[in-house]
């Protein structure tokens, strides 16, 4: 998806700025927007670059900083926590060799915390890009990571 085609999908009205930004970043491999892309987006939606930057830096799913190909977002809130989300986090940290906020050296995985995903009835849970995984166990996590590694290769 090019910037132009993404932009054409949304009317040139400032109200679509947040959604257009997320849509675009989701489709990009590094899940982020660059400065020159922000300039073009600002022009299209007829808002200032300041405005776009404040929006990108405000929302958790928007970023100026490039991320890995697969962004793993793990819930650290109470319902998941009391359902052993720490063991899931430890599994991820061990298998990936990174801590939350970091990206694996091969650029494949970024690990982040996220707010409650609303899957507390199937806790613990995490998201990888736009897929939600629930009822997690350390074994399931290892299997999921292998799947993603295979998919990439």
């Amino acid at each position: 998806m090019t910037l132009e085609s993404m932009i054409q999908k949304y009317p040139a009205s400032p109200e679509y700025l947040v959604e257009a930004l997320r849509d675009y970043q989701m489709a990009k491999n590094d899940h982020s927007v660059t400065e020159s892309e922000i300039v073009k987006i600002a022009k299209y939606f007829n808002v200032t670059e300041s405005k776009v930057c404040s929006v990108v830096s405000f929302y958790s799913f928007l970023s100026e900083k490039p991320k890995g190909r697969y962004v793993i977002r793990i819930c650290r809130d109470v319902p998941c926590f009391v359902n052993k989300s720490e063991s899931i986090l430890k599994t991820l940290e061990t298998r990936l060799g990174i801590k939350p906020g970091e990206t694996t050296p091969d650029g494949l995985f970024t690990l982040e915390y996220t707010g409650c995903l609303g899957q507390c009835d199937h806790a613990p849970a995490f998201r990888i890009n736009d897929m939600t995984y629930v009822d997690l166990t350390p074994d399931k996590v290892k299997a999921i990571l292998s799947e993603y590694r295979e998919e990439k290769s």
């Binding site: 009205s13 400032p14 109200e15 679509y16 700025l17 947040v18 959604e19 930004l21 997320r22 939606f45 808002v47 405005k51 404040s54 929006v55 405000f58 929302y59 958790s60 799913f61 928007l62 996220t114 707010g115 409650c116």
Partner: peptide, 22 residues
């Protein structure tokens, strides 16, 4: 759609988000 912000569940923040703002 939202873009990852709990506070956008607050009614005014929600309106701001629909309007394309923080």
């Amino acid at each position: 759609l939202g873009a990852g912000s709990y506070v956008c569940g607050e009614e005014f923040a929600l309106l701001e988000s629909i309007e394309g703002k923080t």
